[in-house]
């Protein structure tokens, strides 16, 4: 897009020297999140309850794992993966079918992850071999994928009292069981990205692909790896989704998409690629997941939720654009 040149010139001059930065983003997010919690708590004392904590962490789980996948695509310069809904529904269907066949939970999880990785690899194949922009490729594969899924099934649900069903309703240390894998994944990815060779390569490709190429990093292999791994995260998110969503249809994941993109941008993971800290996802996703519950306590209808989320996203990208323009990442 025509504004990217400006952003690219603002990218760090030494691309392989990865910025850990963005703690300012973290403090700001934390402040806004606390403000929301305190404001709601003052308005309605009963907001500050274990019930609210359960609701927020429950929402965070699926969104958080999807946001890791989206963040990986964004940080490596792939911009956005718009096909996450189709990928997730396909992997969820795989999870449902496997658990209907009586498979143990481990097999269900592996099956869903493989399905997700396969989808990611398919996107990557089109992106790499046809040299097309991922935004349009994933827009098209989402179109095609959801249409095919609608032809395949109308409604699916994990069998009652199957292992995955139990997992979706279990709790651990007072929080939903599905929250913990999300927390672990965000912490691990956030730890590994700036500290391992492969993580730094991915960030370098996103920051300045010409420089990355000059350093001998294969752009094609990196794209393939990133899309496949990001697909794997979507696959795992599908397990959490299928475990908790109840009956779902091919359109059920559409509403998640924007929340995830908003989460990634708010976390300071630049859509232009090359910078971001995955740990921030905990704050941004936490903040976004608190909004629905907060609004309920303020007595506002669930429709107003999208108004807030939409304007928060606009403000976040405006700040993101402003920073890139001023060259202070």
């Amino acid at each position: 897009m025509s504004v990217t040149p400006a952003i690219e010139t603002a990218a760090p001059a030494v691309p392989l020297k990865v910025r850990l930065g963005g703690w300012g983003t973290g403090l700001m997010l934390l402040a806004v999140w606390l403000l929301l919690i305190v404001a709601t708590g003052l308005y309605r004392q009963d907001f500050l309850s274990h019930q609210t904590l359960l609701a927020v962490t429950f929402t965070m789980a699926v969104v958080g794992v999807l946001a890791i996948g989206q963040g990986l695509v964004a940080i490596s310069g792939g911009f956005i993966d718009l096909s996450q809904p189709a990928n997730m529904i396909l992997a969820s269907l795989v999870a449902v079918r496997l658990s209907e066949a009586g498979m143990p939970l481990a097999v269900v999880i592996v099956g869903a992850i493989l399905s997700g990785m396969l989808w990611g690899a398919l996107n990557a194949a089109i992106v790499v071999f046809a040299r097309l922009n991922p935004v349009i490729v994933t827009l098209a594969t989402n179109f095609i994928g959801l249409a095919v899924l609608f032809l395949v099934f109308q409604l699916a649900e994990v069998p009652l009292n199957s292992e995955i069903y139990q997992f979706g309703r279990a709790s651990f240390l007072g929080l939903p069981a599905i929250f913990w894998p999300m927390l672990a994944l965000v912490l691990i990815v956030g730890l590994l990205m700036p500290r391992t060779r492969y993580g730094r390569r991915a960030i370098a490709v996103g920051g300045n692909k010409a420089a990355a190429k000059a350093r001998g990093i294969s752009l094609k292999l990196t794209r393939f790896a990133i899309f496949t791994i990001a697909g794997g995260f979507v696959g795992f998110a599908s397990v959490l989704f299928a475990a908790t969503a109840g009956p779902f249809n091919p359109g059920s994941a559409n509403t998640l998409q924007l929340n995830i993109i908003a989460g990634v941008i708010l976390a300071g993971i630049s859509l232009a690629g090359g910078r971001g800290n995955f740990w921030m996802l905990l704050l941004s996703v936490g903040f976004l997941s608190t909004i629905p519950t907060s609004l309920v306590f303020f007595g506002l209808s669930s429709d107003t939720q999208s108004i807030f989320q939409g304007f928060i996203l606009i403000i976040a990208v405006a700040i993101d654009g402003w920073r890139a323009r001023k060259g202070t990442p």
Binding site: M1, V3, A6, F79, I80, V135, L258, I261, A262, I265, L271, A272, S301, D303, T304, Q305, S306, I307, F308, Q309, G310, F311, I312, L313, I314, A316, V317, A318, I319, D320, G321, W322, A324, R325
Partner: peptide, 26 residues
């Protein structure tokens, strides 16, 4: 947002998409 602040058009108008849908539903 886009011209004044230099926001990425896809992301900014995606936000407007969500916000306006909410307003329409309200």
């Amino acid at each position: 947002a886009i011209v004044g602040f230099g926001a990425e058009p896809i992301a900014a108008t995606l936000g407007m998409l969500v916000a306006l849908r909410g307003i329409a539903w309200v």
